[in-house]
Structures are given as structure tokens and as C-alpha cells.
Design a protein around this nucleic acid. Structure first.
Lengths: 195, 195, 195, 195
DNA sequence: GATGAATGAGTGTTCATTCAT
DNA sequence: TATGAATGAACACTCATTCAT
């Protein structure tokens, strides 16, 4: 009996990220993904129900990782709210620095997927956002951040700003060193949040 | 939508915005657009070369309008840099307040389109961004804004933040009144830019 | 504007009968049907929703014709029950004599189709059977036929016998002249029904 | 169905009959058959060359049994031709009474299979038909049956009638008790054959 | 210009069959 | 024998685009 190596499942996912990044979800062909993963077309369907399931899995994994990292930051009692916001930004930058194709997929496809069936979207995503919101609220409560701001709106604003920058960077990494982007984001964010 | 006698071209474009907003570009069918515009499928091709040309036209018009408005703001010598940034934000909010379907299309499809062939993307878009950048630079030069910031990065950050907020609003207008979003954005932006 | 010629719809149906007869429904390919009808594959879907709709249409037309003919026979008051049974047999033989491919499709595919969703099967089929049953009952009531027989069972028996013979004939027309088959069927049927 | 230890071959065949009966041959999946037989998909191919071989085996066994029974009837010198015809009908009814799924498979799939390669179809089938024909001929020779009838045609007619009734019964056993069907068939058959 | 019937290239998915273990 | 992961050929159906009228 042949055993599932488990490698194929991962290989398919990695290939999918690359193919989705290059062509966009809709123009990505299953046979391209299979080809790049060195498996047969049909094998894709051994591990994933359909094309969308692959995309969904990509985001599941992504947000699981991001949430766990942010959670560990948040549970560190030695950090101020400011330092936690700093860490949040670092977490996002680091994961995409590691895999720029993933950044492209994230920016280009998450909206469409989440819009289709928000309730089916990975729970870690909402947990991540909630935690981010919580951190901002903590900053307000501890008089570090300006009470005038609406946490949900600011959360979205920062998130969107980061998303856009990461997209540009993923698309043209040479244009700006990531650390410069990072510094600027931290600067504007903090100075905007501090009283 | 009622057929606009003698102006099928506009009717098609308006219908396309609605259909693209509802289904996303890739899942939008030409016959749906034609139907909503009360014209025959074939008529779409009388006015537009292909499906992508419709999308391109939507962005052309959008950025033309935005650029012209920002230009007029910028040419007003009575405004400070801060007031110009305020006006920039207002311009963006107002146009999407007027047409939320357009906001959705903008947020969901611009990336994909611009990525495909950046050089073919409407020139007004770049002009708009350059002008925004210019305004920020002016603020730095006049000692209003912090010189530490990189104008291009900050420009993208704010732009992305706005984009994301508009998307959320377009998708669920009831969640937040646009004016609250607007206030918050202005607040964080200004406090982040000012020394 | 191109006008639907109406010929294509018929051409596709005729081709489908031939292709279904030769390969069986499941092994028949849409492109084969289109090819034989001298139309493009896509044109098949201009006229029919899907593959099954073609098969369904074939039976709709078949049973509509058969029912109308039997109805006209039944309404002829000069005929005895025996003569009506004779006519019923003739009707079936004649229609398949005219189109032997249709006979094959009928024999091979009707069961599967009717089994899938009996309630969606053409109404004319049930009307035809009911009328056949009615004629037999009339024969019993007028003391021509044996009262011991159960009309529904006998109806099915004769129907199945005819079906099988027609199938054999359609498959190997040379084996038996249709008129010999017809005579024998009439003979056994009548002698079985008469007291 | 419970796994029959040491007799996977039989378990697969029994499962196949049920699955073919429920879904029809073409829509039956090998993995469904394997699942029902409590064996792995691959095991099916240990015992059968391919999907069609399973169907072929079902008919082989069926006709072997039927032929052997009819042969034994025919060799009984105490029976008249009429009694032999009676017995023939009983044989058919009894085997399907015992296994109604088999009846469905027989009715739905035999045509397609036999049509594809008549020469490869089980020999017992032809032997059975020939013996049936022989019995009718005997009846004619012994002046019991009407000499006008063509034995081959009548054989097919009766066979088809039975087939159709069995199909209806297998599909809706509650509609008619099998013994009523049996009586009616015997009645019409005999009265049609006797002078 | 306007129409909508006609086109046919293109692809996600299925599933019978194979084969390494 | 037995397994079930892996395969890849096959196909129904879609829909952007064309073009005869």
C-alpha cells in the first residue's frame, strides 16, 4: 500500500501560493499548480476538495500563525501597549518578508474570499483583529493612547495601510527596503496614537 | 436600471459598476451587464473593446475626477498643507459616499488591474498620488510635518488605510457612519504627521 | 441580427437520437452530437439546458405523438376494442419503423430517465398508458375480453413485449420483417385477450 | 453488508448488484462497491479485470442458474409443454423474488451490455432462450400450441413482457403482489399459445 | 448603430485504473 | 493477497467575443 507522504499536500499548497501570486486566483489553473508541485492534476483533489479549498487553507494557516504570535506578544506582561503595537507590526512584516508570494495572495485574494462567505472565513482572522483592537483599547485605558479614537476604525485604518504597503513591497521589493517601511509605519502609527 | 435613451455607453458603464461590485470582476457576466443596461449583449462591444476595457474605463473616469478635484484644492493658495490633506480625505470620501458600488469595485479590482500592466493604468492615478505626495512634501518643507517621514511610504500607508475603511463601509454602510470614519482618519493622520 | 433558424434545434435533436442510439446516452459526447448536426458545441446549449434535457425532449416529442395518435383512434366510435388494440400496436410499430434509432433510444434509455424522476417524465407517457388501459377495460366491459385479466398487468406485459421486439428489430432489422413481428404480436395478444 | 471473511470476491459481487441497482451501472462508483463490500478499492481489481467484468459476471451467474433450472425442467419427461412454460415463468419469477436488486440490474443493464458485444455475452443466455424456443416448438409439434406463431418472435415477446413486469415490480414491489402478476402472465401466455 | 444567435476555446473536476508498499 | 494514494485522460458546460442581418 502506498502511504500518503504528506509532502504532496504541502507541495501543492506551496505551489498554489506561488501560482496564485503570479496569476491571481481566477486565472490560476489547477494543472499549473500540480505541475509546479510535481504531482498529477488529480492528486490535487486527493488533498483538497476544490480550488477554493486551497485558497482557504492558505489563509487558515496564515492567520493561525499570525494569531498565535500576536497572542504570545499580548500575554507578555512586560510590554507596554506601544511595544505591543510595534510587535504587531513586526509580526506582519516578518511573515511576509519570509514569503512575499504569500503577501501578494493575501492582498489580492483575501477580500474576495472573505466577502463570499464571511462566516466561513478562518476564525483566527477575527481573533487576530480582536486582539489588535484589545491592545489599542488597553493603550487607551492606560492613558497611553488618545481616547478620542475609535478602536475599530483605527484598527482597520492601520491594517489597511499595512496591507497596501506590503502589497507594494511584495510587488516591487527593490523600491523600498522593508525596514524603512517598517520604521515609517511605526512612526506614524505611534505618533498618531499617543496623546 | 432604466435605459438611458441615446446614451448606451453610460448605461453600460453604470451597470458594469453595479455588477462588478456585486459579483466581482471575474464572476461578472457581460450578459448581466447588458441586461441591467437594457441593451443587447452585442451592444456592449460597440462601445467597449472587451470586458477589461470596461473596468479600465471605470478607473479612468474615477481617477480623472479625483485628480481634477485634488488639483483644484492644491492650487488654492489659501490652504495650509494640513487643510489640503483634510481636503484630500474629503475628496475620497465624498466620491464613494456618492457611489458605494464604485468604492467596492475600486477596492476589489484596482490591484489586479494595475498589477497586470502598470504602464497602461490611467495616468491620473499616478498624478493623483504624486500630487498627494507633493502636498505632504510641502508640509515638510514648511515645517508643518515631521521631516523624518518618507513621503512615498506615508502616502501609501494613508491611501491603503483609507481604501480598507472605505471597503468595509461600502460593504456594511450601517456599521459606521462615514463621518465618524472620516473624523478618525483625519485625527490619526494629522496627529501622525504633525511634529 | 442573426435570427434563430429553428433548424439547428431540430438538427441537434435528430443527431442526438442517432448518437444516443449508437453509443447509449452515457457514452454519447456532446461534441459528437454537435458535429453530426453541423453546429458548434456551444450551440447545443443555446437550445438545451444540458445533456439530459435533450433526452427528455426526445421522449416528450415521442410520447406526445404517440398519445395524440392513440387518442384519435380511441375517439373513433366505429372501432371495436380489438380493432383499437390492433391500432395501438400499429401506432407503435409505425413510429419506430419510421425511425429505428428512436426505437433504440426508447428501449435503452427510457427506464433510466423515468426512474430518476418519474414525476418529471412527460405526461403524455402516462396518458398513453392510461388510454391503453382504458381500451382494455372497455373490451372487458363489452364482454369482448376476458374479465379475469388485470388490466394494468396485461398493459405492462404487452408493452414490455412490444418494447423488446422493437429493440431486437431496431438492432437487427434484417432478422425479421416488421410485418411478421406485427402479425405475431397481434395474434398472441388477441387470442390472449379474447374469451 | 458485513465483510465475508475469505470471500471478498462474492462480497464484491453482491455489493455491486446492490449499487448497480440503486444508481445504474454508469453512475455506480467502484469505491462505493468496495465500501459496501468492506474491502479496499484496489481489491476489486484483484478479483475483476474492470468495472464491466463485474457486470458481466453478474449476468454469467444469473443465466447459468436460470439455464440449469430450465434444463432440468425440460428434461422432466412427465411435463407437458404447457407445464414447462409454466415452470419457465416460475423460474424467472422465483429468482427475482429472491433478489429484487438483481432484477433491476437485469432489466436496466442487460441491453446495453449485450448490445456492446453480443458474441461475448454469456452463452447460458442463448442456451436459455434456445431451450425456451425449443419448448414452444415442442408444443407446436405436439399440436398443443398454435402453429401460426413464430417461436422466436413469441419467445421474445413473452420475455420482454416478463422483463417489463419484473422491472415494475422490483421498483415498486408494493404495487402488485408477485403472485398476481405471475397468474396473469400465465393466463395470457397460455391462452395465447393454445389453439 | 443595434441585435442576439452562434461560436469554440478553455478548465475544474471526476473516477476507473494502477502500483508501490 | 490487500491496500489506498496516486494518476491523468476525459468531458460537460461556460461565456467572452463575433458577425450576419
Amino acid at each position: 500500500m502506498r502511504k500518503k507522504e504528506g509532502n504532496k499536500e504541502v507541495a501543492i499548497l506551496d505551489s498554489a501560493i506561488k501560482v496564485f501570486a503570479e496569476y491571481g486566483y481566477h486565472k490560476s489553473k489547477i494543472y499549473k499548480i500540480a505541475e509546479l508541485a510535481n504531482v498529477a492534476t488529480g492528486s490535487v483533489y486527493v488533498y483538497y476538495d476544490d480550488k477554493e479549498a486551497i485558497l482557504r487553507k492558505i489563509f487558515d494557516q496564515l492567520w493561525d500563525r499570525l494569531y498565535l504570535q500576536l497572542k504570545s506578544v499580548h500575554e507578555n506582561e512586560h510590554l507596554t501597549s506601544i511595544e505591543k503595537i510595534d510587535a504587531l507590526i513586526d509580526i506582519l512584516f516578518d511573515i511576509f518578508l519570509e514569503n512575499s508570494a504569500l503577501a501578494l495572495v493575501f492582498v489580492n485574494e483575501q477580500f474576495q474570499l472573505i466577502q463570499k462567505a464571511p462566516e466561513k472565513f478562518t476564525d483566527s482572522y477575527n481573533k487576530f483583529l480582536d486582539l489588535g483592537e484589545h491592545i489599542v483599547q488597553e493603550g487607551i485605558d492606560t492613558k497611553l493612547f488618545n481616547p478620542k479614537i475609535d478602536v475599530k476604525i483605527i484598527r482597520s485604518f492601520i491594517f489597511g495601510g499595512l496591507r497596501h504597503l506590503l502589497h507594494q513591497w511584495a510587488h516591487e521589493p527593490a523600491l523600498y527596503p522593508l525596514h524603512t517601511i517598517r520604521q515609517n509605519v511605526k512612526f506614524i502609527t505611534k505618533n498618531g496614537l499617543l496623546k
